[in-house]
């Protein structure tokens, strides 16, 4: 527990002080508790999401960083992307089986911006309506099947 708090404190400090372009720790979400963050993302310029703003919610378990965080899009603008479901769940391998404790909130945010940036057609995943009806609230409980590396 202590190691999780120490590391999150460090990450929060670094991300607040020196954030990468298009990533900001949301001032309204993070103050309440260290185990739940809200991060504002900007669509990268020159991509389909230019000018759009998104919000990511991070939830950390006490086993972080050995256990991956729960990451979902929240708010009114959920990006229209073949790997993002309309309830905000993201199909991204580093959030489950390819997670590594060397990854951080910052690297996850950059991966998601990169995933959005390589999109060529704004559309929902083909099984969106079925998944949204049947899935668990926690995206980590979904048995994701990573088969499409193109986007």
């Amino acid at each position: 527990m202590a190691s999780m708090e120490k590391r999150l404190q460090k990450e929060l400090q670094a991300l607040t002080k020196d954030p990468p372009k298009g990533v900001r720790v949301s001032p309204d979400g993070t103050c309440r508790t260290l185990s739940e963050w809200i991060v504002d993302l900007d669509g990268a310029p020159g991509t389909l999401y230019e000018g759009e703003h998104f919000q990511l919610q991070f939830k950390f378990s006490s086993r972080y960083p050995f256990d991956s965080p729960q990451v979902t899009f929240i708010g009114t603008n959920i990006p229209l992307h073949p790997h993002v479901y309309s309830n905000g769940h993201i199909c991204l391998s580093i959030l489950t089986e390819d997670w590594s404790p060397a990854l951080s909130v910052q690297s996850v945010c950059l991966s998601i911006i990169s995933m959005l940036s390589s999109c060529t057609e704004k559309k929902r995943p083909p099984d969106n309506s079925f998944y949204v009806k049947t899935c668990s609230k926690n995206p980590k409980k979904t048995r994701w099947w990573y088969h499409d590396d193109s986007v």
Binding site: K6, R7, K10, P65, A102, S104
Partner: peptide
């Protein structure tokens, strides 16, 4: 590379991390 703190009982991997 895991706790982001100064390495305690440090070890280095073959790949240099």
């Amino acid at each position: 590379n895991i706790c982001f703190d100064t390495a305690k009982d440090p070890i280095v991997s073959m790949c240099g991390h």
